[in-house]
Design a protein around this nucleic acid. Structure first.
Length: 253
DNA sequence: AACCAAGACAACCGCCTGATG
DNA sequence: ACATCAGGCGGTTGTCTTGGT
């Protein structure tokens, strides 16, 4: 394949477009259209290559371009589509009227990618806290049980003689990544799907901020997922994730 | 006020594909 | 079938702006 000569070698201008150039291009396209991009700059009197003109028009000057910040809905659409399609910016752009692939690509690299990485790091941190709390709880309950029943041997605990006791064995092997003892009454289970941002909820008295909330409380029961803002639930989750041990008031964000 | 680093975004580059002769 | 061209796409770079020191 023969490569077209680059703009510089042909003495054509590069770099940012001036308002005059923009106006020239707009006027020409409004009058004659853009049937042939390669021929257009010469006919319009622009010292630019056709490719540059096309990009300038499609990414910036087109009348149906939507300028300004992306809405929350647009951002969510991009995130979802990117999850499905990967870096197919033009396909993603076709689903967002008035937005160009270039703009979407820029937004992705400058905002959305970082936000997703941040969310992922948060989820990982929470998961770690959850894991640590789980271990602490496990140890506490085991030691309490040992103190209350000094006559029992440690092998009795792990054999599951008393079904109300959470032992190392039934905790680890019974239900993975869930907070639940064999009576299934005391501890709500964590629905892993709730870690995803769209499923997280904030307590009513939490302040809405533009940044990612630091603490969020996913709640579900063994049978059904629900969202709760009751003090009891908040206290449970606050102690679980923040690890303060003593719950006094909800944190200000 | 001056400088510098980081962020945001416009523009370019190189490759690919489909159309055409 | 092959060569050439135009247009499209995604990755990368360049430039301007902004915020911090």
């Amino acid at each position: 394949m023969v490569r077209a000569p680059c703009c510089e070698k042909m003495g054509l201008k590069k770099g940012p477009w001036t308002p005059e150039e923009d106006q020239t291009l707009i006027s020409y396209i409004q009058q004659y259209g853009h049937g042939n991009w390669r021929a257009l700059p010469k006919q319009a009197g622009l010292l630019r290559c056709g490719k540059s003109c096309r990009l300038r028009w499609t990414n910036y000057l087109r009348p149906d371009i939507k300028r300004g910040n992306f809405t929350r809905e647009e951002e969510e659409t991009i995130i979802k589509l990117h999850e499905m399609l990967g870096n197919r910016w033009s396909t993603i752009a076709s689903r967002l009227p008035g937005r160009t692939d270039n703009e979407i690509k820029n937004v992705w690299h400058t905002h959305l990618k970082k936000r997703l990485q941040h969310n992922q790091a948060n989820r990982e941190a929470k998961r770690q806290i959850n894991e640590n709390s789980k271990n602490e709880l496990k140890m506490t309950r085991n030691s309490q049980q040992f103190e209350n029943s000094p006559q029992q041997s440690s092998s009795d605990f792990s054999s599951g003689v008393d079904s109300s006791v959470v032992t190392t064995d039934n905790f680890d092997m019974g239900i993975k990544d869930e907070y639940i003892d064999s009576s299934s009454e005391t501890f709500p289970r964590i629905d892993e799907n709730l870690w995803y941002t769209e499923n997280l909820c904030m307590p009513e008295n939490f302040k809405e901020t533009s940044t990612e909330p630091e603490i969020q409380f996913p709640i579900s029961t063994a049978s059904t997922t629900f969202r709760s803002n009751t003090d009891e639930d908040m206290e449970f989750w606050y102690n679980l994730f923040v690890g303060a041990g003593e719950f006094t008031e909800l944190p200000e964000l």
